[in-house]
């Protein structure tokens, strides 16, 4: 590996950066920040069942995707607007990912970054193809798969952001005594957050001909998953907040994680109530008076459901951010010893 060192631009610390280049990081950030709205517009497409608003693919009612008259979709029916916007945004993410691959090849001196960038491109293309297949085959189960890969790609982009960041380059590997349990719990948050997204997609894309059993199993799994996620995320968050963390950003991330999990549970409950009304065990209590009438495809209903999905992706993103960073720093345990060896960067 090329060991050409460069100075930290801030000049505040004297840490030698192991080949840090700003552009790969900037591109990765760009891809991640464009992917985030993409997945929640995708979520809106689901909320409004607009997946079939444009029946062909990759064309748009016979037009090239980019040449489709903007007046038609911008001022057209809402579902057409959503689906077309989703497609345009997706193309943008595709192009940005190509850019990322080029930048990584030209700038990042770590060879192992190359396959990582190429995988991002492969994923984006596959995801686009899957979206197309969902439209062409009119297959809702593919929509579900498409809906669960989206956040996965976002999480991957977040990981790329961390790996290309200045922060990453500043860390020094510190061999320590591995505390498996703590590392496992950070990873468990990632895995659980992702499983929850998949189960959520399963619930939102439930085939109308599915059995009540199918739906019940999905609901209960989602609830149990929520409980487990709450438990592990709180554990990890407290570890970060109280733990012997040299880097203040970890404490901060712990709080964010806690906040997102709490918000996610609130959004989840609200999503259910706004769609299916109060659950049986409260249905005969005065609470039901608060939100007595559901409005199908109402603004509030859609906003909450989309917020639940978007926040879920964000939660996954933060979990990945935290996990990758933890794995980078705490090669060993959360014990203060190895940390002392790490040069503490500013904030």
């Amino acid at each position: 590996m090329n060991e050409k060192a460069s100075r930290s631009t801030t000049g505040k610390d004297e840490v030698l950066l192991d080949g840090y280049r700003p552009w790969p990081h900037r591109w990765a950030l760009l891809v991640a920040w464009t992917t985030f709205p993409l997945i929640w517009v995708g979520g809106l497409v689901t909320t409004y069942d607009a997946g079939m608003a444009v029946p062909d693919w990759p064309g748009t009612f016979g037009y090239n995707l980019f040449l489709y008259p903007w007046q038609t979709w911008l001022f057209g029916p809402w579902d057409l607007f959503l689906e077309h916007k989703h497609r345009l945004l997706a193309s943008l993410v595709g192009f940005l990912t190509i850019g990322l691959v080029i930048v990584v090849y030209r700038q990042d001196q770590r060879r192992w970054m190359r396959p990582l960038a190429v995988w991002a491109l492969v994923a984006v293309i596959a995801q686009g193809g899957l979206g197309g297949a969902r439209v062409l085959l009119v297959e809702r189960q593919l929509a579900m798969l498409h809906g669960s890969i989206g956040p996965g790609f976002f999480a991957y982009c977040v990981a790329l952001c961390v790996v290309t960041s200045r922060w990453w380059h500043q860390q020094k590997a510190t061999p320590g005594d591995a505390n498996g349990f703590q590392r496992v719990s950070v990873l468990a948050v990632v895995v659980l957050a992702y499983i929850q997204l998949v189960l959520g997609a399963l619930l939102r894309h439930v085939p109308e001909a599915a059995s009540t059993m199918y739906f019940e199993v999905a609901v209960w799994s989602h609830l149990i998953g929520a409980g487990l996620l709450l438990g592990t995320a709180s554990f990890v968050a407290i570890l970060m907040i109280r733990g012997p963390v040299g880097d203040a950003s970890f404490r901060w991330l712990g709080w964010v994680l806690l906040l997102l999990v709490g918000a996610q549970i609130a959004f989840g409950c609200a999503t259910w109530v706004m769609k299916y009304h109060w659950p049986t065990f409260v249905v005969q209590t005065p609470i039901t008076r608060i939100y007595a009438l559901i409005e199908a495809q109402g603004m509030l209903q859609s906003v909450i459901a989309t917020a639940h999905a978007a926040n879920g992706s964000l939660l996954l993103g933060v979990a990945v951010l935290l996990a990758v960073r933890v794995l980078r720093v705490y090669r060993g345990s959360l014990d203060p010893k190895p940390l002392a060896a790490v040069a503490a960067p500013a904030g």
Binding site: V206, E208, A209, A210, T212, Y214, F215, E216, A296
Partner: peptide, 24 residues
Amino acid sequence: YRRNCAVCHGITGDGIGPAGAFLN
């Protein structure tokens, strides 16, 4: 119908759509 109703009322209109068992 499938988009708006079937999750609860079922494809057949039997009131046993996938979410049917949860409603009260």
